[in-house]
Nucleic acid binder design. Structure first.
Lengths: 339, 339
DNA sequence: ATTAGCACTCTCGGCCTGAGAGTGCTAACG
DNA sequence: CGTTAGCACTCTCAGGCCGAGAGTGCTAAT
């Protein structure tokens, strides 16, 4: 049973270990918190905590290190979050507005900012629409035999593709065709666009264009779906002070593993921030890593923002910051998509 | 003076060192090539080569290691390229066709393939037009206060940005404005567009839109401009067997440094493959790295494909492979842009 | 329940050392 | 004169040893 006192001590062990990365001794606990107890008493309590599985010793007669259960308890009940103060909020928002580019730049930037704020690897996935709808399509003449089809989705994404023309066309004709199609297709999803295309004369250019639009709406980009930053920072953590560990870390953080992880773990209710610690996720390679993740966006279109680091991670700092950045992104995404 | 015999020996030293990463001894040279000379003779020649600056000793009485000059000589005159055999070509092309996505996916894939083929870091930059010109601009209503500006360049690139509106507008008004601007701006580069914008009433929405278009034409995507892969492989090279070196390597290879490097080094004639070895490039952080790079594309639109690795790199394998992949990409890019 | 005291355990860095690899030099040889 | 055998010398590197220090668990006393 976790008495109140032991809980307090456990909190001290976890905090201290998060800060120093050194096994925590009974002496350190007493001194750093000016406890009116002797080290021997603390040692007894530490022994109990170890029995109960909250902490372990790297070897006989070293200090104590939190176990996954210890971190879990810390996150759930012991820790108090380190709020994102107004000044820090301003800094983050300022950095966010640094770039005036498209969605990609903006996602990439947010990963960089978050990584900087928490000193670990940050990953942001591109928002994926449950089912995009067309807002507007345009046709641009490339040369006599081909046009470029540019489609803007209701979530602000822009997709393009080449569209070969059976007969030479002018820009004026293309614009006409686009206007004609926009009237009928705006606000429709891929299925509806296909249905409408089927009603048009099968060989008409309008039908071919509509079919191409439907494909664009369906298209899911596979590469470039995730943005990652902060590798450098995380590798400076003491857990990677040996070459093999470091190599392993670089390999583990390669996007394809990480991506699967993010997709698996999204059963959380949107808005909530989820924490997965060490052994809690199935993947063997991630037994010594923790992930803090949060969805952003809304029902129609959502992505994930996550921080990945060693289990010894500053949860009390990371959790509110992940939540804050996710909130910010929901907000910005909402703005882009109006409503 | 570099006699023929010394040149041969230098070639042996470089090849051997590239393969083993160990300082090369006189014994190793005689044994591995069944020379009819004693080690003492080789030692005399090695001493001469050292005097002339082609090789160095890490410490007194260790074997010899090539200097940058040694590698340079190897690359220019001693080495014979290891051609990309038909089977390997097929493998690479097969991998290339694995993906049916857009330009980005395809560039990312090519970096991965090249990295795998040479066992070092590969970087591919997005093709950039020498000076883009506007082909066509469109405005799409997002909500009452903001529109999305989508500009198509003459090289087929599409760029977009948000455009806040001072007063509420409808899609019809936006389309009118786009049509008006297209007539005047089509075919112009950023400077010309700016000049034209200056002639319009300063506070008009048309002027604001034209200025935004000019920015889009100029815009150099900072994020997502380069695709990099192979970090893992290169970190396994023995030169990074110590933690500090490895950290330094990860930091060095962060894209922003690398990007500048690629931009600096493009004075080569397109088509040719360029090799920069160690001290030859100015950047201090790259003194122990070599870069093999080649442009792809044509006069209108070109990017760079490069391999980055320790100076002890398998140049005879890397150079033809970089050239081959660049050629492949020129070809594919040509296809995409047809003509 | 708490604590002082103490024996015990284990790590870690420094130091030493011997083996081994490889060289440069000298003197002899064809 | 180029080549070579022989040898002394230099330097690295892995392994072993050792003492200091940190920290614990246990016991007995309060």
């Amino acid at each position: 049973m976790l008495t109140e006192r032991r809980a307090t001590i456990l909190g001290m062990v976890v905090s201290e270990y998060i800060q120093t990365a050194e096994p925590v001794s009974s002496r350190a606990i007493v001194d750093h918190h000016h406890l009116d107890l002797s080290t021997a008493t603390i040692r007894n309590e530490l022994a109990r905590l170890e029995e109960e599985g909250y902490i372990t010793q790297p070897y006989t007669s070293a200090g104590r290190v939190p176990s996954d259960l210890g971190y879990r308890t810390f996150v759930e009940v012991l820790m108090s979050e380190d709020p994102v103060l107004a000044a820090e909020q301003r800094t983050i928002e300022h950095q966010m507005h640094q770039v005036a580019g498209g969605l990609d730049e903006w996602l990439s930037l947010s990963a960089t900012i978050l990584a900087g704020a928490v000193g670990n690897v940050a990953v942001v996935t591109k928002p994926r629409a449950r089912a995009s709808r067309l807002r507007n399509a345009q046709l641009v003449e490339l040369n006599r035999e081909a046009a470029l089809l540019v489609a803007v989705m209701d979530d602000g994404r822009v997709r393009q593709r080449m569209l070969p023309q059976r007969t030479p066309v002018t820009q004026a004709e293309l614009s006409d065709r686009a206007t004609r199609l926009n009237v009928r297709l705006e606000g429709l999803d891929a299925t509806a666009v296909r249905a409408l295309a089927a009603e048009l004369p099968d060989t008409s250019e309008d039908a071919a264009t509509a079919r191409a639009i439907a494909e664009l709406i369906d298209e899911q980009r596979t590469a470039e779906e995730t943005f990652l930053d902060g590798l450098n920072a995380v590798l400076r953590q003491p857990e990677f002070s040996d070459v093999d560990r470091m190599l392993e870390a670089v390999a583990t953080l390669q996007a394809y593993r990480v991506r699967r992880l993010l997709e698996e773990a999204v059963d959380a209710q949107p808005g909530a921030t989820q924490v997965v610690i060490g052994h809690e996720h199935g993947d063997d390679a991630l037994q010594e890593w923790s992930v803090v993740l949060s969805r952003y966006g809304d029902d129609d279109s959502h992505g994930t923002v996550a921080v990945i680091g060693p289990t010894r991670m500053a949860y009390h700092r990371t959790i509110p910051r992940v939540r804050y950045v996710a909130g910010l992104m929901s907000h910005l995404l909402h703005e882009v998509r109006q409503s």
